[in-house]
């Protein structure tokens, strides 16, 4: 399991786990307004880093898109370092 970010306000905590296929779970305080944007940011980042077969959990406290992308990138880097 690899993590990046935090649960402070305007931040998000990303948790990555290995998985047989890609799963994305979003738990956001602003999910009713921004679920799709968050999902797209996650999908986009996974795609650009060429990552498949991970389970992504986004625990979001109102982070902007670039914060979500940055946190996910770091989680991926941390994962790559270990693999």
């Amino acid at each position: 399991m690899w993590q990046a970010g935090s649960k402070e306000s305007n931040d998000c905590l990303i948790t990555l786990k290995k998985s047989d296929k890609t799963k994305i779970k979003i738990d956001s305080i602003v999910g009713h307004l921004f679920h799709n944007q968050i999902l797209n940011a996650v999908k986009d980042t996974l795609k650009s880093d060429n990552i498949n077969n991970v389970e992504v959990l986004v625990e979001d406290k109102g982070a902007l898109d670039y914060t979500i992308r940055a946190r996910l990138k770091v989680a991926i880097k941390r994962m790559m370092k270990d693999v």
């Binding site: 602003v30 009713h32 921004f34 944007q37 902007l64 898109d65």
Partner: peptide, 9 residues
């Protein structure tokens, strides 16, 4: 520009 356009509830 900062937040993105929120969905209609």
């Amino acid at each position: 520009d900062i937040t993105g356009v929120p969905a209609n509830i």
